[in-house]
Design a protein around this nucleic acid. Structure first.
Lengths: 148, 148
DNA sequence: CACGTTCATATTGTGTGCAATAGAATTGCG
DNA sequence: CGCAATTCTATTGCACACAATATGAACGTG
């Protein structure tokens, strides 16, 4: 009986992706522990650090991060309670909530400046390899989201 | 001011990985909806389908899936409540809990036989590309877990 | 300018993930 | 044999993810 080769766990791209993603998140844990941040919170700050004076709506952040309000609303409330962002209704459109970095939130960028290099040293690959892998994963995301 | 190029969201391998993994999980949703399974439950069944008569301890499954008991215990209880597995203490070592496929759990393997091909058609890449990507991700996981 | 539709965010409910702890069983060492 | 250390699973607490729904604001059409 040959079995069901299409179900072999070690042949599944999905499983390799799922496992690698969780390993990556765990790798950030010790690097973020000082600041009390989780990995999703760190990624949210990455989006905000891009242009620190610029306020973003929840929807803009969600589009950028591929996350919905059910995830972002409580996450942003926790960032606000830690003093890293502020949340306020947009005066021009009261449906929108604007998220802005605080001085403390911006200061985190300097405190965490070495994090990307620390992670890079754990990847076991050259920067060019990482770049290629990143591009393949981005293309994969686009294909998967287009099929939805 | 040049800024902080190391923090550019679109240059982060971690973010591409995080986003792709969630996109993949979402892609499985419609394919598993009929069975009531979630993606982590499906992956757990993949491990069990490998050798359907073989009982596994929670620890063995956790090692295979890189998941701990805090995740697996409730997940396996849900699979048991759906009738797809049974859970029982190992008579030879009462610390261990043995997980076994039921007939219904095994029958799912036939009901879901087309799932891997359906997913493959959403990936936007040739099988050989997917295989290479999978190998790179597996190597990445090993590097990240070795650095822990 | 009313009012139904659409838009933006919040809430609810379910199911992971994982660190930390607890608790029971087994093992190993003297 | 006795008991401390170890092993294995379960529990607890917290933080995502996301579908489904609710709520309120803004818009468009007549």
């Amino acid at each position: 009986m040959a079995g069901y080769p299409q179900f072999e766990l070690d042949h599944q791209l999905c499983f390799a992706l799922y496992t690698a993603s969780r390993a990556m998140t765990r790798a950030y844990g010790p690097l973020l522990a000082d600041t009390g941040l989780t990995y999703p919170q760190y990624v949210t700050l990455l989006a905000l650090w891009r242009d620190p004076g610029q306020a973003r709506s929840v929807g803009e952040l969600g589009e950028r991060l591929h996350l919905d309000s059910g995830t972002l609303t409580p996450l942003l409330k926790r960032l606000a309670s830690m003093g890293y962002v502020t949340r306020s209704r947009d005066a021009a459109d009261e449906r929108r909530v604007l998220v802005t970095l605080t001085a403390d939130g911006l200061a985190l960028r300097d405190r965490l400046a070495a994090v990307p290099m620390s992670i890079a040293s754990c990847l076991g690959m050259a920067p060019s390899e990482g770049m290629t892998l990143r591009e393949q994963l981005t293309a994969l995301t686009e294909s998967l989201e287009a099929s939805a």
